[in-house]
């Protein structure tokens, strides 16, 4: 066997760095959409590696629903400080106050789909022509058909039936006025790849991802954190539980899993034996079979 073989993590890293560098070269105003979740943290780490010893040559954009975990915000601010990059925050509360969107009512209300308006407004305000995200194709069936360079029309919409073919490593980022791109450098990574990479690279994560004690509410098979943003239904009880998070969205919709995994090794072991997908705990995907496809078409992440 020849020695000219690289591991799958190295190959995925190489591919992602190539894509990030293409974005920096092909676009005027790129940005990373930073949610504070592990995927966007990995993406930011890759961007740092891509341009070292120079700084990341574009800002991070965070769409803040106002329903974030406080740990996420603290982590975000420390990371930005550390990297010396610019942070742009788009506030969903602002769109609500201006009457651009209306809040959902009822116990299952979430600000998840309200983010679309703030996201598109923020991209327009800062004239972002390429917004990089940490979405992966293995997450969800609509995402399985996503391109690395995903074209959006002037309304920010995704047209899955009319995507540009993507061949070899030749990415076509040419666009007409008013259009923009979403770019997904870690498209080919799986949840396991992300965790193994975090371990290999020793990447810091918010404490939410590790096992901790928290007051929780069980709803429709999901475990939700109790917070000021959640309205309890009749006969729902708040209970202290030992949990951790596999994804990191709003407090109102991101389900925790019961887990005692408090280290990366234990988490990797847990994932290797786990029998549900990481978005299985996301109430936003459970609204309809095509919930993700529908939101993506409108301009969602």
């Amino acid at each position: 066997m020849s020695n000219y073989v690289i591991s799958h993590l190295k190959e995925l890293e190489s591919e992602a760095i190539y894509v990030i560098r293409e974005v920096a070269a092909q676009f005027e105003n790129p940005a990373i959409l930073f949610s504070g979740g592990k995927d966007s943290i990995v993406l930011t780490h890759l961007a740092k590696k891509a341009f070292f010893p120079a700084k990341i040559p574009f800002p991070l954009i965070h769409i803040d629903t106002g329903h974030n975990f406080p740990e996420t915000i603290a982590f975000r601010d420390a990371l930005v400080e550390n990297l010396g990059v610019r942070l742009i925050v788009g506030l969903v509360q602002e769109a609500i106050d201006k009457g651009r969107v209306r809040e959902e009512n009822g116990a299952d209300a979430s600000r998840n789909s309200l983010q679309i308006v703030t996201l598109l407004d923020t991209l327009e305000t800062y004239k972002v022509d390429a917004a990089m995200g940490g979405a992966r194709r293995d997450e969800e069936k609509a995402r399985a058909k996503e391109r690395f360079f995903s074209h959006r029309d002037e309304f920010g919409q995704w047209d899955p039936k009319n995507q540009r073919p993507e061949l070899w490593n030749l990415f076509n980022g040419r666009q007409n006025y008013g259009e923009h791109f979403r770019v997904f450098p870690i498209s080919n990574w799986t949840e396991m790849d992300v965790w193994e990479y975090i371990k290999q690279e020793n990447i810091d994560l918010p404490s939410l991802y590790f096992s901790h004690q928290r007051d929780c509410v069980q709803r429709d098979g999901a475990i939700l954190a109790n917070s000021d943003y959640i309205k309890l239904k009749e006969n729902e009880k708040v209970m202290p539980m030992t949990v951790r998070y596999r994804t990191c969205g709003d407090m109102t919709i991101t389900g925790a899993v019961e887990s005692t995994a408090d280290s990366l090794d234990k988490i990797i072991k847990e994932i290797a034996t786990t029998r549900t997908t990481e978005r299985g705990g996301r109430a936003d995907d459970k609204r309809a079979v095509t919930a993700m496809e529908d939101r993506k078409k409108q301009g969602y992440f």
Binding site: K141, A142, A144, K145, P160, K161, S187, T190, T290
Partner: peptide
């Protein structure tokens, strides 16, 4: 391996879909 709404409606695949296993 079924993907998009329009594909399910027509019972066909219209685009390249990427799958992962290890």
């Amino acid at each position: 391996t079924d993907g998009l709404k329009s594909e399910r409606e027509q019972g066909i695949t219209i685009d390249v879909a990427y799958r992962y296993f290890a």
